[in-house]
């Protein structure tokens, strides 16, 4: 039987690799499209970024679940682990949003760079999460210059988290009904 820690390493490699490729392609997509919108690389980068993001997103739940299981005391016992969990879900939310908007709303020229920025920030969240993993297991990583992510975390009370969830869901529903009405 494979141990959760070993499985976590495998899944995080998948997530980090996929998200890193996606992030690079999002940045290149913006840079190339500024130069030449008609370039074949624009389409290539766009497709690669979204497929890589989708692949990384598919591996993400396994990485989060195995990460929680491989910690003997749970993510709530260390600010570093709590930040890892919050960053990975933030990155996952962004990635999901990017994929969903690309699927449902298509490729809109006006918001192309904003879309790419969200994709890149999602990658940033994932890479920072992975880097914190390095800090946790090896006490060393490329983000040692960010001490606050190891020592403190911004925790909301449970009621506020529920409030945020409800607000966002309500906003999405209002926006959806408003679009249909005016369309």
């Amino acid at each position: 039987m494979i141990e959760p820690a070993t499985f976590h390493v495998i899944t995080t490699e998948l997530v980090v690799g996929s998200f890193a490729l996606a992030g690079l392609c999002f940045v290149l997509h913006s840079l190339i499209s500024i130069q030449n919108k008609e370039s074949q690389f624009v389409t290539m980068m766009d497709s690669t970024a979204h497929i890589a993001l989708l692949f990384g997103l598919l591996a993400l739940p396994f990485a989060i679940a195995s990460g929680i299981n491989s910690s003997p005391s749970g993510a709530h016992t260390s600010p570093l682990l709590a930040n890892k969990m919050l960053l990975s879900t933030a990155g996952g939310g962004l990635a999901l949003g990017v994929l969903f908007t690309r699927w449902r709303m298509g490729n809109d020229d006006a918001s192309r760079h904003l879309h790419n920025a969200f994709g890149s920030i999602s990658t940033g969240c994932m890479l920072l999460t992975a880097s914190l993993g390095g800090t946790y297991t090896r006490a060393d990583s490329l983000t040692e210059f960010l001490p606050f992510v190891k020592e403190s975390t911004l925790l909301l009370p449970a009621w506020m988290s529920i409030f945020v969830i409800l607000i966002i869901l309500a906003a999405l529903i209002v926006r959806q009904t408003s679009t249909i009405k005016h369309g």
Binding site: A75, H76, A82, M85, L86, T89, A90, G91, G92, G93, L94, L96, G97, V98, F100, T101, F118, L155, L156, P157, A158, S161, I162, V164, I165, I168, L169, A171, L172, R175
Partner: peptide
């Protein structure tokens, strides 16, 4: 609370991209 905040992060950032 941590679990709820994680879900809130997921929903918040997903919604942000859409909104």
């Amino acid at each position: 609370a941590l679990l709820l905040q994680s879900i809130a992060h997921l929903v918040l950032f997903f919604g942000l991209v859409l909104l």
